[in-house]
Design a protein around this nucleic acid. Structure first.
Lengths: 357, 357
DNA sequence: GTCAACAGATAATGCGCAATATCAAGGTGG
DNA sequence: CCACCTTGATATTGCGCATTATCTGTTGAC
């Protein structure tokens, strides 16, 4: 780079040192709190002189140099496989981001979004050109749905400080995460349904094997165990499409199931629609509840005020950042950090006691 | 840091060089495409050997070191004075962010959100402890409403590469920005209203002196000039509160104004409400249009489908980033970069021809 | 056969900072 | 009055990389 191209080099510690007539080490000490924790001690008078010089020059530490020298730079990353801000994605990511921003702000760190981490075919990827592009940040929070599990496993195995939002189990890697307690929430929901007097509860389950669904499986199983044969519970595997759902609802109703539980709010809406089509009214004739508030097509489902478990998104985001901070502050402890947070509940208007009760 | 704490040092170029029995410079050349653009040339055989060594060691470049050596770090910042992910979803910022993310992704850069830039009293500020905290990024896009103009002026004067979203005029500083052409949009809207047959058009103007409002002033003035005395146009200064607006609407109607134009959608809603209260129907008896789609209380206004100018938010965000990129790539050219983008128009349902026409 | 040109590599420097080792005084106790 | 500690500072090194200058052997031209 020619001198003419270099418009104005940012001032460095050396510049400050020169102006204040001290050694660079003193400047460094002043910048990073001169508590003498490092070998260098600085008197009050000199410190003041240095600070004045800093102010005068507008000196600001160079992050790259700093992180090279001490290995941290005060930047926390957020990685998602999809673009963060578009409308559809925003609705999903938003609650998490609120929590993440909140916690990161508290840590006095900055937040880095890995928009540049895509391979040549425009797909986002952690390993860009074979290099871990997340390295820019001290550590990262990982959010996402459509993910590349191999990449994630490699990331964690490499020892990169990462915390997932949502439970993840990866082969050969001890993952840290902030998850929602869908298991307990599911069990409690089923118990609540049973407590209302329902004696036939059917769960429609999609084909996903995501951890969050497995958690609900476990919760449902726990509820069945608890309720024993006092309540007839069943699980039906149904593709997550309106037609498929409409196809199974009549049979379930006929068999005496008075409450149908679905994986998410959208499917619950499908059930409501199917029930309505049968001339049944919800919740008078059939109760409906969802195990997730998430809905892909946002407003289509709004006319039903579905009873549903809610995800503590903000809390999860904040918790993930705090776990990450712990991970960074105590690198000696290599154990995964995990937090499981209670879900919320939206009472809604699709669950009541069954007609007979 | 004790050896026990250092979990696993990552392999460096030096390690690779040793394993492949070459000099570090060769490794560097191989890693960054050995097109000989730098002085170092590497033969095919050695290159293959080096690549094998890289693979074997799982070498990954250290970003900090790299950006220290090259002087840029591929990070573009976004600074806002308020939290970016506020609880009330889909904030003011959202459309801009969509565009910013899009353009940044195209540049292959990362996006940094300055969450850590707050002073001790928790207010966000560019100059934290008197030093420009934006320096972390190569350059930044600035979005915001409640801003500290002195800070902004200082920032630009310091030569920090920054691009505003929205027009800004700062004392003593040549500001780069990506703005919306509210002036033209306003003129065209008034012409359209006149074209529909309205002969009395009143504009309710709040007290703001923000550039975006001044642009609308200019547009309205241009329209008045154009229309001459064929149309009775007037401007009424009214505090942006529902009561104040309700107080002036009856008089305007009585004076024969058949269309009322407001600064934003929310105020337009207030006008609609006031008109309805008078027993008038919108738009049959009174047309209403807004010069900005923005609305503070989001859903309260939704029952009126207000005719309004729309802000090309996504385009502005993307344009701002591209201007910034130009600023960074051509630091020699110190002139401000500016782009003005056409507004959109939402036809809505509150504007028709006046009854008499 | 001599010199130039070039391919293919190495050596060395610096980016900006933190940390470590080192050093000069002034103060205290014996 | 000398050994010793404390305070307040400096000199130096190295983090991992890109880059520049430098060096060596091999061709090719004349």
């Amino acid at each position: 780079m020619k001198a003419s191209e270099r418009p104005k080099k940012r001032p460095t510690q050396a510049d400050v040192a020169r102006l204040a007539s001290v050694s660079p080490a003193v400047v460094s000490a002043v910048v990073n709190g001169r508590d003498g924790s490092n070998g260098v001690r600085v008197g009050d008078r000199t410190a003041a002189r240095v600070e004045e010089a800093i102010r005068q020059l507008g000196y600001v530490p160079n992050v790259a140099a700093r992180s090279l020298a001490r290995g941290r730079n005060g930047i926390i990353g957020v990685f998602t496989y999809e673009a963060l801000f578009p409308m559809q994605a925003m609705s999903y990511y938003h609650p998490f981001l609120v929590g993440v921003e909140e916690a990161v702000e508290e840590l006095d760190c900055h937040l880095l979004l890995f928009t540049g981490s895509h391979t040549d075919d425009r797909r986002r990827s952690i390993y860009k050109n074979g290099t871990n592009s997340l390295q820019v940040a001290d550590g990262s929070v990982l959010i996402g749905q459509s993910e590349d599990r191999d990449e994630l496993a490699a990331l964690v195995r490499d020892g990169y400080p990462a915390v997932f939002i949502g439970r993840r189990e990866l082969p050969g890697a001890e993952v840290s995460y902030a998850a929602a307690d869908y298991g307990t929430a599911t069990r409690q929901l089923v118990e609540r349904i049973s407590g209302l007097g329902h004696r036939g509860i059917a769960r429609l389950r999609g084909g996903s094997n995501h951890e969050s669904i497995l958690d609900r499986d476990a919760g449902f199983a726990a509820a069945r165990e608890l309720l024993g044969d006092r309540v007839d519970t069943t699980e039906v595997f149904v593709p997550p499409r309106a037609e498929s759902i409409a196809a199974v609802v009549p049979g379930l109703v006929e068999q005496g199931y008075t409450c149908i539980v679905t994986d998410d709010r959208e499917r619950a809406g499908d059930v409501c629609a199917a029930a309505t089509a049968l001339g049944l009214s919800v919740p008078a004739d059939l109760s409906v509840a969802a195990l997730s508030e998430y809905s892909y097509v946002d407003n289509a489902v709004e006319r039903w005020d579905i009873t549903t478990i809610t995800t503590p998104g903000r809390e999860m985001g904040a918790a993930a950042v705090r776990l990450l901070a712990d991970l960074l502050d105590n690198p000696a402890d290599r154990s995964p950090r995990r937090v499981v947070i209670d879900c919320g509940f939206h009472a809604g208007a699709t669950l009541t006691a069954p007609q007979g009760a």
